[in-house]
């Protein structure tokens, strides 16, 4: 499903590699926590999966496609099979909840008929059926993140990448978001979540990949955040 083979990523501005000879494999339907301190390479890991960047060395394979050799024109196709959620939600402030979700489908040319059908479905799934007409500014942080998740999931991606999705949320709200991500995972979608939130990691007991200085220092199924945190 997802495979990194001896992946090294050097950024021109820094002498130390962001990722240093990283090899790992993630199967379809897995739920993986990517942990590590700031600058450990978590974000680079996610960026490489989206082909936002190319590795300096090594191979990245997603959904059976080698990203290194993928042409620029095929990148949109790749991204249509992936959903992204961020710490800062990244919603369009001047569009309603419904429009924000529909936007993701409109710009990939989905027929209006489909959009009309699936947007209410996904809003119901994330628990926002009554707030379709609200603007993001009128919602709480947790609700905004639900909109972002709805937008990431509305096209039924094979992989959902979440970069610190609970970073801006209180523990109680975070728990709701995690339940939602779990539910999405149960539909067969692979979830890869970068996080600092040890409460969440410890309570969920899922696979944990720990990065440190760009290297994988731990890969543990049903892991915890770790000692010495």
């Amino acid at each position: 499903m997802i495979e990194l083979q001896h992946v090294t990523k050097l950024y021109p501005a820094s002498a130390r590699p962001a990722l240093d000879d990283v090899s790992t494999e993630i199967d379809k339907g897995e739920f993986v926590f990517l942990i590590g301190s700031s600058g450990s390479g978590k974000s680079t890991f996610l960026r490489l999966l989206l082909k936002e960047d190319d590795p300096t060395k090594g191979t990245v394979v997603v959904n059976g496609k080698t990203l290194n050799t993928m042409s620029k024109w095929n990148v949109p196709k790749l991204r249509r099979t992936m959903g992204c959620v961020f710490q800062d939600f990244r919603l369009l402030r001047n569009r309603t909840v419904e429009q924000n979700v529909a936007f993701a489908l409109e710009v990939i040319n989905k027929p209006q008929r489909t959009i009309k059908r699936v947007v209410p479905e996904v809003l119901e799934m994330v628990g926002l059926e009554g707030k379709a007409g609200r603007l993001p500014g009128e919602l709480s942080g947790g609700e905004q993140q639900r909109v972002a998740i709805a937008r990431a999931f509305v096209n039924r991606p094979l992989v959902l990448l979440a970069d610190e999705p609970t970073g801006n949320l209180d523990p109680e709200t975070s728990e709701g978001i995690m339940l939602l991500l779990e539910r999405i995972n149960r539909t067969g979608t692979t979830v890869i979540m970068a996080t600092h939130d040890y409460h969440i990691v410890d309570s969920m007991r899922r696979r944990v990949i720990e990065l440190n200085g760009g290297q994988i220092t731990r890969d543990q199924s049903r892991g915890v955040y770790g000692v010495g945190r």
């Binding site: 989206l50 620029k72 024109w73 990148v75 949109p76 196709k77 790749l78 991204r79 249509r80 099979t81 992936m82 992204c84 990244r90 369009l92 402030r93 936007f103 993701a104 710009v107 990939i108 040319n109 937008r151 096209n155």
Partner: peptide, 17 residues
Amino acid sequence: RNETNIMRLVGASRWYT
């Protein structure tokens, strides 16, 4: 940039963007 960033991430074609 907000719109185009989202378009890029959800896989809108370059042409469309």
